[in-house]
Design a protein around this nucleic acid. Structure first.
Lengths: 145, 145
DNA sequence: ATTCATGCAAATACTTTGCATCAGC
DNA sequence: GCTGATGCAAAGTATTTGCATGAAT
């Protein structure tokens, strides 16, 4: 299955006329293997375990490429730092607790009625998965009282 | 009315034991006077018109103070840059077009049903005004077709 | 008089870019 | 062989911090 993912990712590059390089393969595999939302630094650290001489600018460039290719998506969380996740994970929203930093995932059907409203009332096509909802989670708000 | 706003803002500082300084007054007044969501750079530029020797770090520090005092709120837009607005404007959401950058404001009642769901189903207290919804606005999506 | 706020400059964090070399096609 | 990708170093942008001086209380 690992090999399968690898060839799928490599094909995604080739189909778009991008060159397949070891760095790109590893970076793409790494993002696929990481659950949830990870910073560039997180990805870089993981990639370096397998390919120590990789440069962080290549990670930035590859992520941008993946986003162009529709394979990855980035989101700015509360602190303004970009977090990345693979595009297939796109069909969810994130709740981020401002106190403890915990992330909750949310099915899109909770958000869909809002998206529908935005389309109908404003003609606006929201990219629902592209942002996080910030707030305070249950355990933190209980702790506060 | 300008004087009234000024004394209200200065009182807000004094009540919390913060010192009232010319810089703080001007920065706070400036944010009050600017509609919508502005970057630190925007605020700094305006403040400097009235008080040229002000330093940008004072702007950062004052905005942080205002946020602590509940007078201002900041939001990270799509590019990760912080945008500020006054807290009374807080009761709205922003739609940001990823193509043209245009900002639309949105009444909270459109978002309230979602907020209600999040509270009921997840025990999560969303800070609805604290983030922007990214997507493509009507004119850009028409232009694309 | 004491304490806090400011300006300045330097540091930090994140991200982008120019360019020579190297690798994929 | 040609062209695009990479590593490296340097620059860029947004933001934060240490410290001496100056202002508010």
């Amino acid at each position: 299955m690992v090999g399968e993912a690898k060839s799928r990712l490599n094909a995604a590059l080739r189909d778009r006329g991008y060159r397949v390089t070891l760095q790109r393969s590893i970076i793409m595999e790494t993002l696929e293997g990481l659950a949830g939302h990870v910073s560039v630094e997180d990805i870089y650290a993981r990639v370096r375990e397998r390919f120590p001489q990789v440069n962080i600018s290549t990670v930035y460039r590859t992520l941008e490429l993946m986003e162009e290719a529709g394979l990855a998506v980035h989101t700015h969380f509360d602190d303004g730092v970009a977090k990345w996740h693979r595009a297939e994970e796109g069909a969810h929203q994130h709740l981020v607790c401002r106190r403890c930093g915990q992330e909750l995932e949310l099915d899109l059907d909770v958000v869909e009625p809002l998206a529908e409203q935005l389309r109908a009332r404003y003609g606006f096509q929201p990219d629902i998965a592209h942002f996080a909802i910030v707030g305070v989670c249950r355990s933190c708000s209980e702790r506060a009282q």
